[in-house]
């Protein structure tokens, strides 16, 4: 019977998972051109941060991290609502939601 204790789940596993999800979301924000998908990838990144908060709050044994997760969820929902309203406005103007139509903000 091989020793499996090195595969036991600890704090670092949760943090690594969170880092990976965050980086996948970051790649999505940078690479995708569809504005709706970019918003979805931002939600992914916020979720990764939530995993970190909950893991730290569990391993520290206090509830402060969970409260921050509540705030992050509220702000994520607000951000999604405003972002989607902006996308609706953009679509009415340009008939597309491709981000390359808004590059004159790039400077």
């Amino acid at each position: 019977m091989p020793d499996l204790s090195q595969y036991d789940v600890g704090l670092s596993h949760y943090l690594l998972l969170s880092a990976m999800v965050f980086c996948i979301g970051l790649v999505g924000v940078l690479v995708r051109k569809n504005t709706i998908v970019i918003l979805m990838c931002i939600e992914l990144m916020l979720n990764a941060v939530n995993i970190t908060f909950v893991a730290f709050s569990r391993y520290q044994g206090n509830n402060d991290g969970s409260i921050i997760v509540f705030f992050v969820m509220a702000i994520a929902a607000a951000e999604a609502a405003v972002g989607l309203a902006l996308i609706v406005a953009i679509f009415k103007r340009f008939k597309e939601v491709n981000i390359r139509f808004f590059e004159h903000l790039k400077g």
Binding site: D8, G10, L11, Y59, Q60
Partner: peptide, 19 residues
């Protein structure tokens, strides 16, 4: 990110969980 995480937090396992 992941190397620094592994370097700093690698030693907390299930047995360290507070009640």
């Amino acid at each position: 990110l992941s190397t620094s995480l592994l370097y700093v937090f690698s030693d907390l396992g299930k047995e360290d969980l507070p009640r």
